[in-house]
Amino acid sequence: MKDINEVPKNVHDRLEYIEFMLRFRGWVSRSDLTERFELGEAAATRDIRLYREHAEQNLALNQKTKKYEICENKFKPLFAFSIQRALSKLRTSKVAESLGLSEFNGVLNPPRLAYPDVDVLSSVTRAISSSRALKVTYKALVSGKSNKLLYPLAIFDNGIHWYLRAFDPSKKEYRSYVLTRFVSVEIDHDNPVKGEMKLSDHQWNRMVELELVPHPNKRNVRQPDTIAHDFNMEGGKLKLTVRAAVAGYWLRHWNVDCTEDHSLKGFHYQLWLCNHQTLYNVESRSLAPGLSEYQ
């Protein structure tokens, strides 16, 4: 019998789908494959037979419904499904419909309030890929609209906006720019991004470790064990390693109290940064809850 990882990619994907439906719905049928992959019934039957050859203990045919049902007590997955991939699949409309979730609009996510222009985004990624500068018109919150030359290095998402990390030669500094604030973007093909520019962005290249714990204020968090379980903490801590350039953005997105004396109040502050000294000389620290320079 051929190893599961040696079968053709299209067959591998269908076998993985069979297991996904078993694991997350509890049953699978030939029609799942014929409708999802536009297969004939004979091909769908072969795929189910092949899956059974590799994992016979995982499913059993219900003669009344003609559906293959999961054997919960014997089930051992053939495919390693990360929680990230599983959640991603649940968000797709076809999978949600197959699982019976579409009656309530599938798996709801908060809508994004702002999307970058697709032409702006594609120009930025092409410039990064080809190591070329950008001529842009940008609308800043404080200074308004201006024309800039930027050397693009990377992009990141803070959960609300997409950002461009770039070097601004006029200010001789590295900064993060909101992609939705670009009015126009043009690739400067005659102006390359040199390798040392990437190496010299110390805030991007510096990694900081964040140690998050349940918030000590009993009014914020009455049951710290619940928070520890909620975030899968080990020894009462959740340790994350992130880039210094984005640390403040993400701490704000997570509502982490970053004050030294855990003084922020409110039920939405469920986490506290217990190693607050890790943000020393971190450029984005002013965005972190409790450390904002805007009062």
Rank of each mutant, 00 (worst) to 15 (best):
Y51H: 10
D261I: 09
L87Q: 08
G26S: 08
D190A: 12
V208L: 06
H262G: 15
L150G: 12
P169I: 09
I48R: 06
S170N: 07
E209F: 00
F167N: 07
W272Q: 03
I48G: 12
L99M: 04
Y280K: 14
V242F: 00
Y51M: 11
A245M: 08
Y269E: 09
Y174R: 07
N281K: 12
F267V: 14
W250C: 02
Y151P: 04
H253M: 08
Y294R: 10
C71N: 14
T45A: 08
Y138L: 04
T65N: 06
K64L: 07
L271C: 11
G195I: 06
N5H: 11
S98N: 06
Q270H: 03
K171M: 06
H215C: 08
P224V: 09
N191I: 08
F156H: 09
A44P: 13
A127F: 00
R206D: 06
T259N: 09
K265M: 05
E41F: 01
Y294W: 02
T92G: 05
L134P: 03
V246G: 03
L199H: 02
L273A: 04
P77L: 05
Y68I: 08
L99T: 14
G248N: 04
S93G: 01
R243E: 07
P77Y: 04
E260Y: 05
N10V: 10
W254I: 00
I227D: 00
A44K: 02
L33W: 01
E293P: 00
F267P: 02
R23I: 07
N217K: 04
F37T: 12
L78R: 01
K265R: 10
Y177Q: 08
M21P: 09
R222V: 11
S184N: 15
L134F: 05
N62I: 12
L141H: 10
V178P: 03
V183N: 13
R181Y: 03
F267E: 14
A247D: 10
E6M: 04
Y269H: 12
P169T: 09
L87K: 04
Q270W: 01
C258S: 15
Y68N: 03
D119G: 04
R14C: 05
V208M: 02
S93A: 13
P110K: 03
